[in-house]
């Protein structure tokens, strides 16, 4: 019976969010907030793999997000929308519905390959290299996009709105919200499963003592590259989802170091190496940004202050390196299906 709790919870959430949006139970503003929550969960959980579980310091997550955003939106606009540069749609609009997730995955793969380019030089040695290189990459990506007139340069890239409208014209459903929900679930599933496998736990061994990990037969270089590509790929997925949001418009200014910092803040707020912490903090932080909206620019005075207070009283973040199920063992009934398998292994 217990093992049905989690699928049931997911189903209820899915029906609640998607159904609620479809029937306009929540207005467009709240749909947007929910969308950002989902995207922020993807970003935070994926960055946690590198900054939390692996103990490295990547500060260019927005750069990889940009790669995913641009690659997927160029593809959808080229294939499914009438565009000044790319001409009339290549494929009929009805194809957009099944191909949209495929394009999101292509965007994710592109971001993950960009991650590979960064990982190869920066993981030769441990230390601050990754921080410096990812910082540089964030700027390089932004400047490269700014200088490509074909995709709008600094003005940004438009047309995704038409793609989403075409999809809705074929069949009216909150497509983006559906795929954001699935993307968020997939991200949590991937990171959680990977980090519970003996293979993935090698990442934590690298954080604890990399030399010992290498000497105890962990192929540290390969594992670090895999983890980084996984993390960047998921950032690309988040970028693709973000690009197709209600604005229907992206520009390089969105993917600056500020955006990367925002994701880092969410990771440290939730707790390094805690997936549930990342989820809670992504939801909380998104809500906080919205609640403080009336303050205007002063929001950016209040939020950093809150962070300083947080760091003073709870420096390890909301959950530290624990999971919600460690703090509230009763929740294992819902989230702990896998641990039961370990219990069997122990006997």
């Amino acid at each position: 019976m217990k093992k049905y709790y989690l699928p049931l919870l997911i189903l209820v959430l899915f029906v609640g969010i998607v159904g609620g949006s479809w029937l306009h139970v929540f207005n467009e503003y709240w749909q947007l907030v929910i969308l950002f929550m989902g995207i922020n969960i993807v970003l935070t959980v994926s960055l946690n793999l590198i900054n939390g579980f692996m103990g490295e310091f990547s500060c260019g997550h927005a750069g990889f997000m940009a790669v995913g955003a641009y690659v997927s939106s160029i593809l959808t606009v080229w294939l499914f929308a009438d565009d000044k540069i790319f001409g009339p749609p290549v494929l009929p609009a009805s194809w957009a519905i099944p191909l949209f997730p495929v394009i999101l995955i292509i965007g994710a793969i592109a971001a993950s390959l960009a991650g590979l380019l960064v990982a190869i030089p920066s993981f030769r040695t441990r230390g601050d290299y990754l921080a410096i290189i990812t910082l540089a990459v964030n700027y390089i990506v932004k400047s490269a996009i700014e200088n490509m007139e074909v995709i709008g340069g600094p003005r940004g890239f438009v047309g995704m709105k038409r793609v989403m409208n075409n999809m809705a014209a074929v069949f009216d459903a909150p497509w983006l919200l559906i795929w954001t929900f699935i993307g968020m679930l997939a991200t949590i599933f991937i990171i959680r499963n990977f980090m519970s496998s003996t293979f993935g736990k090698g990442i934590e061994a690298i954080r604890e003592d990399e030399i010992a990990a290498e000497l105890m037969s962990v192929n540290t270089r390969r594992l670090k590259v895999i983890a980084f590509m996984l993390s960047c790929g998921l950032a690309g997925l988040a970028g693709g989802l973000f690009a197709h949001g209600p604005g229907g418009y992206i520009n390089p200014g969105t993917f600056t170091i500020l955006k990367s910092t925002e994701v880092m803040v969410m990771v440290y707020l939730g707790g390094m190496g805690s997936i549930s912490g990342s989820i809670i903090s992504a939801i909380g932080f998104t809500l906080l940004l919205e609640l403080l909206r009336p303050l205007g620019t002063y929001k950016w005075v209040v939020i950093p202050l809150l962070l300083v207070v947080m760091m003073l009283f709870r420096p390890s973040g909301i959950l530290g390196n624990k999971e919600l199920t460690d703090v509230f063992p009763k929740l294992r009934a819902i989230f702990g299906a896998e641990e039961e398998n370990y219990a069997h292994a122990a006997n």
Binding site: K201, A213, M216, S217
Partner: peptide
């Protein structure tokens, strides 16, 4: 040792 990890994980990871 990998201090924050459990004793069991310390052993298991060595089978990487």
């Amino acid at each position: 040792l990998w201090n924050e990890l459990s004793v069991l994980d310390n052993i298991c990871i060595a089978r990487a």
